[in-house]
């Protein structure tokens, strides 16, 4: 019993920070997270979804009960990817390589064979694509499409679905 009490106190202390923070250990709920209570964690302020809270775009949510199947609609994959991985994608674009750049190309339907061309075009056009400090994901994606449309190899390789 003593042990239980001790544990309860321990948890009371540790989880109390969690109840308001919603940080993700094994116990806490997604619900808190969903509410974007990002205040107490300074690190969290850089969470991409915080700047672009569009987590629900194009989800095929098979929800029954409280289950959430957040499977992104195929035609919304690129937009969802850019908005949720904005900083990682921007950083990869500046470098002209990286997993986030490759993954985005994949969501647009670009073939692996044109990866090098895509990467270097993104690097070359970095300023155009990310011109403003916080460009909207839609705008960023539009610029990426323009790059593809202007390049004879990319326009062949990517399906722009």
């Amino acid at each position: 019993m003593k042990v239980l009490l001790l544990l309860a106190t321990m948890f009371g202390l540790s989880f109390s920070s969690l109840a308001s923070d919603g940080s993700s250990g094994c116990g806490p709920g997604w619900y808190v997270l969903q509410e974007n209570s990002l205040v107490s964690s300074s690190l969290r302020a850089t969470t991409n979804g915080f700047l672009f809270p569009v987590t629900t775009i194009g989800m095929t949510i098979g929800s029954s009960n409280c289950t959430r199947h957040k499977i992104v609609l195929k035609e919304k994959e690129s937009l969802h990817f850019v908005s949720q991985n904005y900083f990682e994608f921007r950083s990869d674009s500046a470098k002209g390589r990286g997993a986030y750049l490759s993954a985005l190309a994949e969501t647009i339907g670009c073939k692996k064979s044109s990866e090098a061309v895509f990467n270097s075009s993104m690097k070359k056009n970095y300023k155009k694509v990310f011109g403003h400090k916080h460009s909207q994901p839609e705008k960023v994606l539009e610029e990426v499409y323009k790059i593809i449309l202007r390049d004879s190899e990319l326009v062949q390789s990517c399906s722009l679905s």
Partner: peptide
Amino acid sequence: YHGYYHIKPYYLNLGLYNNSE
């Protein structure tokens, strides 16, 4: 509390755990 199963893109987890936290 009740727990439920959730499915979501891996990049959301990486963004949260690897980068944010």
